[in-house]
Design a protein around this nucleic acid. Structure first.
Lengths: 204, 204
DNA sequence: GTCTATACCAAGATAGAC
DNA sequence: GTCTATCTTGGTATAGAC
């Protein structure tokens, strides 16, 4: 029962699990559910492929966990922005909070991939539910009107799309692209471009 | 050289090709690029799987064709709406035109899947280009300001997301869901729900 | 122009050792 | 708790007949 019984660097189950989910989020964000390999995820997390499957049972279950965690983080971030009234208008606080989520690599993109997979019986169901949850938050907790909430969501979906398109990578070159970016992220461009930088390297 | 040399129902190459692209659009719309099988497409088009590959070389090339055709149809539809001035405000004409594209099963969703695959060297490149093309249309031909164009695109991306989520399928049940749909498609709900109906059956 | 048969590979999952 | 080896399936692509 001495501690030296354990020579190889192991982690507590929970930590490894978190690590794998985080890596999975990043990869799923790039290639989507079907486009992502459990092996890619394993390599990103520095563990073996069978172990990834072992931990979550199936790739699908893992994706659902990623999706669920993304929603938790998203709503958590919104709630914090809501509580943290710094005098700025609500829309802006929430918007910045949203953009701040770019720090979590793949988080918003994994969500987006899920949103567009509504035909899938299990992923689609969870995705619908999650989207509604966000809408409900905006209406009930944030006190937006349905129109305001719709506009806010629309902006969010446009952001996600631009991130998915890796538009932030081609910034300064094309003047039209640059104008589009500015139109899409009013007053937040610098933040977005900076955070978007993290998205650069991803050799398959 | 008699016509009876050809007993089995063949089509002109061009027509078959069109048919396959259309079927592919529908399936890609449901499951995305990676999630779609060339065999699914083949069955949807009523031809053999190898023949699909034969016609387009690779699955990737086929997807790019689908993407390109979708953009052509989208811009065509917009140009028609622009030219067809019936007194309604431009935003509304374009919006209705956009929603009308739901008639082409999978068209908007295939676009959406492409948009979120920006990390892919070939698909991503084409997708970025296409998105910019649309933005440029709104700014130049439709004469929108950058803000107007941004808002319009945002609405479009939200629509796509709701379609992808199959939100229109759960209409009347949940009151919140219904409110969300109305907020998302102002004055167009009936059209959307009606056209969205076509999306129901899709057994994998 | 279109099919059948099939080669070939990649990916998810399982078994079992350490 | 984590790995190596491996089974199994399914999917893209090719060959070649009709």
């Amino acid at each position: 029962m001495t501690e030296t019984d354990v020579p190889i660097p192991r982690m507590k189950a929970h930590d490894r699990r978190e690590l794998v989910i985080e890596s999975a989020t990043a990869v799923f964000g790039d290639y989507g559910y079907y486009g992502t390999t459990t092996d890619q995820i394993a390599r990103a997390a520095g563990v073996s492929q069978p172990y990834v499957v072992r931990m979550f049972g199936t790739k699908e279950k893992l994706f659902v966990e990623v999706l669920e965690r993304a929603l938790v983080l998203l709503l958590g971030s919104f709630r914090r922005a809501l509580a943290n009234d710094d005098g700025q208008p609500l829309q802006r606080r929430l918007g910045l909070s949203y953009v701040g989520l770019l720090e979590h690599r793949g988080l918003l993109l994994s969500l987006m991939h899920a949103f567009v997979l509504g035909s899938d019986p299990v992923i689609g169901e969870r995705a619908r539910q999650g989207f509604l949850q966000v809408y409900e938050f905006l209406r009930t907790e944030a006190g937006m009107t349905s129109t305001e909430a719709g506009l806010f969501l629309a902006g969010g979906m446009l952001s996600n799309t631009m991130i998915g398109l890796r538009m932030t990578d081609m910034d300064s070159s094309d003047p039209i692209a640059h104008e589009l970016l500015e139109a899409c992220f009013p007053e937040k461009l610098e933040v977005v471009v900076e955070l978007g930088d993290t998205y650069r390297p991803d050799p398959k």
